[in-house]
């Protein structure tokens, strides 16, 4: 299933946050969206998932979702959004309960998805017992359990320390190689974008518009650290963003975007 954005613009009060965004996300592709803080990256992701409606433009889905997909557009949130009163198993179960699956079918899905994310031993743990990295793994397992067509990842690694971030990036690469999932990945971390993105969309400062789309054709598995070509791309991206980031940094925050 492909995702298509046409002329998406949005205004909060008097400030325009997004202007004329045209974007296509192909199947099996990870599209990273980067930009200075407050450029409307997260807002854009909320439009894509249907949690908010843009003032103008449209978000379209091309084709039918894969068979058995319970929730075609599925988020992974920065703050994990796990229910603290449910165990790991219960948190995954939560998103399956409204779909008329029998208890046995649910258990099967849960066991499968926890095995795929290496969480089988933590089934009965409560979120407060888990480290940040494990919490995000649970959130990823939860997202996988509904067999999404497109994963919408809103800075999924930003709340983690840099070592955990590296580990999770490796996990995501491994996962993509096995499952070829489609994802929209919002981040402000250029290293993440260069490591995980097939396509990197650079947004400008508010009002956010697409400044450039960089395609990286190197396979995700071959993207090692200290790769000269990737480093060059990351440097170029930083050149693009630097002035914008500085200007954005000096802006007064007058709304909650």
């Amino acid at each position: 299933m492909d995702l298509l954005l046409r002329g998406v613009s949005h205004t909060y009060g008097d400030t325009q946050v997004l202007r004329d965004i045209d974007l296509a996300v192909g199947e099996g592709e990870i599209v990273c969206i980067i930009g200075p803080s407050g450029c409307g990256k997260s807002t854009l992701l909320r439009f894509i998932g249907g949690l908010e409606r843009p003032d103008a433009g449209e978000v379209l889905l091309a084709g039918a979702p894969p068979a058995g997909s319970l929730n075609p557009l599925t988020y992974v949130f920065q703050d994990f959004a796990l229910l603290p009163w449910r165990t790991v198993e219960g948190n995954v179960s939560l998103v399956l309960e409204d779909h008329g699956l029998s208890a046995a079918e649910r258990r099967e899905v849960i066991d499968d998805v926890l095995a795929r994310t290496g969480l089988s031993d933590f089934k009965a743990a409560l979120p407060r017992q888990l480290s940040g990295g494990m919490k995000q793994r649970v959130a990823i397992a939860r997202a996988l359990s509904v067999r999404p067509a497109v994963m919408l990842m809103d800075e999924p690694l930003s709340a983690l320390d840099s070592q955990t971030r590296e580990l999770l990036m490796d996990d995501l690469v491994g996962l993509w190689q096995r499952e070829r999932f489609t994802a929209c990945y919002v981040t402000h971390n250029l290293a993440e974008a260069v490591r995980l993105g097939h396509k990197i969309v650079v947004l400008s400062r508010r009002p956010g518009r697409i400044r450039e789309i960089v395609e990286i054709d190197r396979d995700l598995a071959d993207r090692q650290q200290a790769d000269a070509k990737l480093d060059a791309i990351q440097r170029d991206l930083w050149q693009l963003l630097r002035d914008e980031a500085r200007a954005a940094d000096r802006e007064l925050a007058d709304d909650t975007v």
């Binding site: 949690l51 949130f77 959004a81 939560l94 998103v95």
Partner: peptide
């Protein structure tokens, strides 16, 4: 509220959100 958003994003019914997220 981010838990409520999460529930909505996974397509939970209104009643499920009240029972499983709001009430606990």
């Amino acid at each position: 509220r981010s838990l409520v958003r999460m529930g909505q994003s996974f397509g939970l019914s209104w009643w499920s959100i009240v029972r499983k997220i709001i009430l606990p």
